[in-house]
Amino acid sequence: MNFFRLLGDLSHLASIFILLHKIQTTRSCRGISFKTQALYVAVFVTRYLDLFFRYVSLYNSVMKLFFIASSCYILYLMKYKYRPTHDPSIDTFRIEYLLGPCFVLSLIFNYKFSFSEILWSFSIFLEAVAILPQLFMLQRTGEAETITTHYLAALGVYRALYIPNWIYRYFTEGLVDPIAVTAGIVQTGLYLDFFYVYFTKVLQGQKFELPA
C-alpha cells in the first residue's frame, strides 16, 4: 500500500458516497446512467470472485465487499426506489459493444488461461470503459447537476491516482502489471474532456454545460 493508492481508494469511496448522497437528497437518479452503474456491478462481481480463495488483507476484503454491496444497492435504488426518476430514453449507449470486445480481449490478454484470471482481465477491461454510457448521456443532455459532476470527478481522480501508484510500485517493488496499467491509462484518458470542463467551469462556480 502506498500514499497514491490509498488516496485513490479513498477517492473511489468518496465517489460512491457522493452518488448515494445525490440520489438520497434529490430523491432522484436523474442524470445517472443505469447502464454504467450496472456495468460497475459486473466489474466488481467478476473481479472480486477471489474473495472466496485469496486473502490479501482485511482492508482489501472489506473494500471489496463494500464495492460489491454499494454498487448493488445503487442499482436497487435506481431500479426500484427511484425508478420513475430514471429516463431510459436518454441512456441509450449500446453496452453489448463494450461487453463483447472486453470479453474477447480478456481471452487474448490474461495472466493465465483460467476461469478466474479471464474474469479478472475482463473486469479490468470493462472497468476501463464502463463510464462511457454515463459520459455519452452527459454529452446528449449537454449539462449536469453539480453534485453529479463531483461524483464523476472523484471517480476520475481515483483512476488518475492509480497511475502514480504504478510508477511508485515500479521503482520500489519492481512490479509492473501491464494489463492493469494499459487499461488504467485508457480509463483515465476517457475523463480528460470531462476534467477540462469540470476544472474550468464547475470549480469556478459555474454550471456544468457543454458547448452546443
Binding site: 477471489d50 493465465k112 483460467s114 501508484n165
Partner: peptide, 10 residues
Amino acid sequence: EEDAVSHDEL
C-alpha cells in the same frame, strides 16, 4: 486455485 499473479489492488 493457484495464483498466476498476485492481484493485491482493488
